[in-house]
Design a protein around this nucleic acid. Structure first.
Lengths: 229, 229
DNA sequence: ACAAAAGTGTTGTCTGTACACCCATGC
DNA sequence: GCATGGGTGTACAGACAACACTTTTGT
């Protein structure tokens, strides 16, 4: 490839689409933009943008996320490259989808309004433009695979969280109930949580302890592999 | 995205790179091309090509594979999109990598010579141009994940194979020895192999039975999920 | 009869899962 | 003192891992 000239090679529009996951304590949600114009008026769309000539694809994804959320240093992962000929109605656009996990509390109302963005429950997907529905389904599946063996789910929670919140998160991601005794035993046996003195008192009289994710401890255990589910 | 014009948006060179896996009964191998010119003379490269304006990205990957191997209807899967700014020396090129699993016997000496291609053992990788080494490492890892739960490994074997060959394949992919009693019990318990009357007689006096992969049976069991390893 | 690879069973350990009661606290 | 959610233990079942001998057959 290196020695041929690239003169007559077709050049492509390269887009980024971001599946932005959040968790409100009950449902797994996605951040979408509602279209105000035809075509596809009223349908939801993922946040997107184009890859420029002077940034890497990963950097473009981070930029798109930053433009919508104002957030940097976010857990983000490439999902898939979507390259069907007719996937975009306007033109031939190849899109690289990424998914991001953010703490929903970090996302302000002002930002939502400024970008006309909305959190939508992913329990059953609304209509989405183009192939965005497929992207979200793929992202949900990949998220399930990922959180089963990697401690990335914490990115969807506040820095300190109760065990119940963590369990609710896994239940939302897998759309299935989990047994709290088995769940807590499994999580504790990993030794990746640090119990704080502080208790969450709002939702019960007894109060439940807060935990934080112990990144340092995780690094030590990483090579052995973890199984959350 | 739909309503803006795309006039001033940067257009990218989009490449395909193929990691083509084969298995010779002993080693897991990759099909590479040896560069005869500077830069990077003598280094190995993956087979690649560009995505044209009139084909999907998947179709481009199939075309690239076909051009090198003459083979169609091959197991192929998208690996990752590699988009670092400086990954290609000549120009800014974004590459979408695919990996393919082929029966090494289907690949003739004539084709190898015609394309100056060679099978190289993946036990320890040779030097590769650009980020191709990373691609191959990623592909090996993804192959491991895939064959652990999906019956795609059969694509690397002849249509009929002995249990020993199948085990050797898994040992090559995981680079670890497996216990033949446990392995055969596990495979048989899945009910996805059909035992033939015929025996392979070349490598032992007793002879070992050939099996074929029972696709129909697999389809029935697919939803339950399988675990090969 | 022997060499060489094929084929086959058992046991202990671990992991997963199902299930129900006591605890601490604010009112 | 009682209502509410928090926190904990046990027992059974299935999966996994370790391990060695018998069978077949060509020479």
């Amino acid at each position: 490839m290196g020695s041929i000239t690239y003169k007559h090679v077709h050049r492509h529009l390269l887009a980024i689409d971001c599946i932005i996951f959040g968790f409100d304590g009950e449902d797994l949600k996605g951040l979408f933009v509602k279209r105000k114009l035809e075509p596809q008026k009223g349908n939801w769309s993922l946040m997107g943008g184009f890859v420029s000539g002077i940034e890497s694809v990963d950097a473009a994804a981070e930029r798109v996320l930053y433009e919508l959320t104002g957030l940097g240093n976010i857990y983000m992962e490439q999902l898939h490259c979507y390259g069907a000929l007719d996937r975009d109605i306007e033109a031939r656009v190849v899109s690289i989808a990424y998914f991001a996990l953010i703490n929903i509390a970090d996302y302000s109302k002002e930002l939502l309004e400024e970008h006309h963005a909305t959190w939508v429950s992913l329990k059953k997907l609304p209509d989405l433009i183009f192939d965005h529905r497929q992207m979200v389904e793929d992202a949900k599946e990949k998220l399930r695979e990922k959180v089963a063996t990697h401690p990335v789910g914490f990115a969807l929670l506040p820095p300190k969280f109760t065990l119940k919140q963590l369990q609710a998160l896994y239940e939302a991601i897998y759309e299935m109930p989990l047994d709290k005794r088995n769940f807590s035993r499994k999580i504790f046996s990993m030794n990746i949580l640090q119990k704080l003195e502080e208790k969450e008192k709002a939702s019960s009289r007894k109060g439940s302890f807060y935990f934080i994710f112990d990144e340092a401890q995780y690094k030590l255990l990483e090579k052995e592999g973890l199984k959350f589910i």
